[in-house]
Design a protein around this nucleic acid. Structure first.
Lengths: 167, 167
DNA sequence: AGGAAGTGGTTTCAAATGAAACTAATTGTG
DNA sequence: CACAATTAGTTTCATTTGAAACCACTTCCT
């Protein structure tokens, strides 16, 4: 009875990390994020969160912090901090909202826009470089699969509050 | 000439975050990781890194910290800290290596194994829950695509040291 | 053998993070 | 109108993280 170097059985199945999808996804994503982040961080001193905020503002000027949080999947604290840094660097500007005193509307400064216009092609080129490994059909598949999984993970996440009711 | 609310053009293309693959992957992965981590963290006080170490040791007992780092895609500092915590909790044991005094070999304690045997089915069930969104063929596709992308990202990552030579 | 260079692993220190508390403005309600 | 309940956003504090410096041991080289 070989006692170790033998993965434990669980519900009849073993856990093999190299075939465990969440793990593989995580490794893949970390590498991708790092590769991209590395490029613009060395060039502009931009962190991931800062860049995300800029990316969304570049597309959609005048959002509030809360709206940013929704669109970036960051929480409001992260948004707040990223915006603070960006404002300090004069890459983003705050404008008080006309009708609601709690809200500040955010947009890129011209300086911010200049950076945006430089980073976007970097990001797109890097995306191209990754996708170069796939055929056009495979890219369509990927798009579809990621969409479905994202949708599914939201469903499951919604059911999460329940503690250990999985088994 | 509509000056804003109009994404800037970059090399002829706009950046639309919702269609930008690295971003979508990142959001997806974060949700998945969180969903899983949440479950075992509430139940066992296990962090992501600790669980990864345990997962690998459960499969392959007696690895060194460096080998763990390779298999988990964590760096050696993270491994060191995760192992320190796990040892403190008596979930992992260190054994000096017979022939190389720098190395310590690591393995799960019986206590660690018990946890492993409980977490594995949780993880597998959750994986099933995600994959339930896909047909069997789609799962095969996904497997293949993730493999190709992971391979590609390694290639690109290897070329990374070059600073801004992308454009 | 003996010192330089390399490796495994831990520690240190500054910066990033997350959760909860907090401020300020708004909305709702009696 | 006044006062509780919400919402936007910031701050605080304890913990985590990442990078570089740091030991201890081994290997390489002469």
């Amino acid at each position: 009875m070989p006692s170790e170097a033998l993965a434990r059985v669980a519900g009849g199945r073993k856990l093999d990390l190299d075939r465990f999808l969440p793990y593989r996804l995580s490794v893949l994503t970390n590498h991708v994020s790092h590769a991209i982040a590395h490029r613009y961080s060395v060039r502009f001193g931009l962190g991931v969160h800062e860049w995300r905020v800029m990316a969304v503002l570049g597309q959609n000027s005048g959002l509030s912090a809360r709206e940013l949080a929704l669109r970036t999947a960051m929480d409001k604290v992260q948004v707040s901090r990223a915006v603070t840094r960006l404002v300090r660097q004069k890459r983003v500007q705050r404008h008080p909202d006309a009708t609601d005193g709690r809200i500040t509307r955010l947009c890129l400064t011209s300086r911010g826009h200049a950076i945006y216009d430089e980073v976007v092609p970097m990001a797109l080129n890097l995306e191209d470089a990754f996708l170069a490994a796939l055929t056009p059909e495979e890219r369509v598949q990927l798009d579809c699969l990621v969409g479905k999984l994202t949708c599914q993970v939201r469903l499951i996440g919604a059911a999460l509050p329940l503690p250990g009711r999985l088994e």
